[in-house]
Deep mutational scan, measured.
Amino acid sequence: HSHMSHTQVIELERKFSHQKYLSAPERAHLAKNLKLTETQVKIWFQNRRYKTKRKQLSSEL
Results as ranks from 00 to 15, higher is better:
51 K>C: 15
7 T>E: 09
12 L>T: 03
47 N>E: 15
41 V>S: 01
47 N>M: 13
17 S>D: 08
6 H>F: 07
39 T>V: 13
43 I>F: 06
39 T>R: 09
8 Q>L: 03
34 L>C: 04
37 T>H: 04
3 H>P: 10
42 K>G: 03
8 Q>Y: 04
33 N>C: 15
47 N>K: 14
13 E>N: 04
9 V>D: 02
22 L>Y: 01
29 H>G: 05
58 S>T: 12
34 L>V: 03
45 F>R: 00
40 Q>K: 02
16 F>W: 05
53 K>Q: 06
41 V>F: 13
41 V>T: 00
41 V>H: 00
40 Q>D: 05
24 A>L: 12
25 P>D: 14
12 L>F: 01
49 R>S: 02
8 Q>R: 02
3 H>K: 11
34 L>H: 01
52 T>Y: 15
24 A>P: 10
53 K>C: 15
2 S>A: 13
56 Q>P: 14
51 K>G: 08
38 E>H: 03
54 R>K: 14
2 S>C: 15
21 Y>I: 04
55 K>M: 11
6 H>G: 03
13 E>S: 02
5 S>W: 05
42 K>T: 06
16 F>R: 04
58 S>C: 15
58 S>F: 07
3 H>W: 12
1 H>S: 09
47 N>L: 10
47 N>P: 02
30 L>R: 00
16 F>K: 03
59 S>E: 14
51 K>N: 08
30 L>W: 00
48 R>F: 03
14 R>F: 12
27 R>G: 02
31 A>P: 01
55 K>V: 13
45 F>I: 01
54 R>M: 12
41 V>A: 01
23 S>A: 05
56 Q>A: 07
23 S>T: 10
50 Y>H: 14
21 Y>F: 07
2 S>N: 10
3 H>A: 09
45 F>T: 02
37 T>G: 03
12 L>E: 01
28 A>Y: 07
50 Y>S: 12
3 H>R: 06
10 I>S: 10
3 H>M: 08
61 L>K: 11
39 T>A: 12
3 H>Q: 08
31 A>S: 05
17 S>A: 09
27 R>T: 07
32 K>D: 05
58 S>D: 09
40 Q>M: 06
18 H>P: 01
11 E>W: 07
52 T>H: 15
52 T>Q: 15
1 H>W: 09
3 H>F: 07
37 T>W: 04
29 H>Q: 13
19 Q>F: 09
59 S>L: 11
24 A>C: 08
40 Q>R: 04
60 E>S: 08
32 K>Q: 13
25 P>W: 10
5 S>A: 02
13 E>F: 05
52 T>G: 10
17 S>W: 13
44 W>T: 00
47 N>H: 14
38 E>W: 06
26 E>T: 02
25 P>Y: 07
33 N>A: 14
2 S>E: 08
57 L>A: 12
12 L>M: 03
5 S>E: 04
48 R>D: 02
50 Y>I: 11
2 S>D: 11
4 M>A: 02
34 L>M: 03
32 K>N: 09
52 T>N: 13
44 W>C: 02
20 K>Q: 12
37 T>S: 12
26 E>W: 01
22 L>S: 01
17 S>F: 15
15 K>P: 02
1 H>K: 15
40 Q>N: 03
17 S>R: 11
58 S>N: 10
31 A>Y: 01
22 L>H: 01
50 Y>M: 13
35 K>P: 00
55 K>R: 04
7 T>I: 07
43 I>C: 13
42 K>Q: 10
27 R>I: 12
23 S>V: 00
27 R>S: 04
25 P>H: 13
53 K>H: 15
56 Q>G: 10
21 Y>G: 02
25 P>Q: 13
16 F>V: 01
30 L>K: 00
31 A>W: 02
